[in-house]
Design a binder for these strands. Structure first.
Length: 114
DNA sequence: TTTCTTACA
DNA sequence: TGTAAGTA
């Protein structure tokens, strides 16, 4: 994982900030957590800390909810996203294996597939 | 003062 | 979801 993704996953934002960033109430943010839509980091003092990525997720949840979807729909949506991501990873894995078999470097000039 | 949990409306 | 109560 690259540095940018690492940093966007850093749990740094307390709930009051997330409330302002998303326009959601603390009650809603904690509720979506209970519904397993997000897994939140906890400090030793049980304080919740959110990452930039999680703020994005909360915004997506908010949008989907206003579009008429329920919690279950959104959970299924995220699950499918997860499966797609896994499929992409498998594809990349096959590609890397292919390059290895063909004795090609992943960073070589033969990088024009796809 | 802010956040957390629990519980009732 | 909103809100009250008692904490950490």
């Amino acid at each position: 994982m690259d540095e940018i993704k690492q940093r966007k996953s850093q749990p740094l934002l307390k709930i009051s900030i997330v409330m302002e960033l998303t326009g959601l109430t603390a009650r809603q943010i904690r509720y979506y957590e209970d519904q397993k839509l997000i897994n939140v980091y906890r400090t030793k003092g049980k304080q919740r800390l959110y990452s930039l990525n999680q703020v994005d997720i909360l915004l997506i949840i908010k949008q989907h909810l206003s579009d008429g979807f329920n919690i279950e729909d959104i959970r299924a949506y995220f699950d499918s996203q997860k499966r797609q991501k896994k499929a992409v990873n498998d594809k990349q894995a096959r590609r890397l294996l292919f390059d290895e078999m063909m004795n090609n470097s992943p960073f070589g000039s033969s990088n024009q597939h796809y």
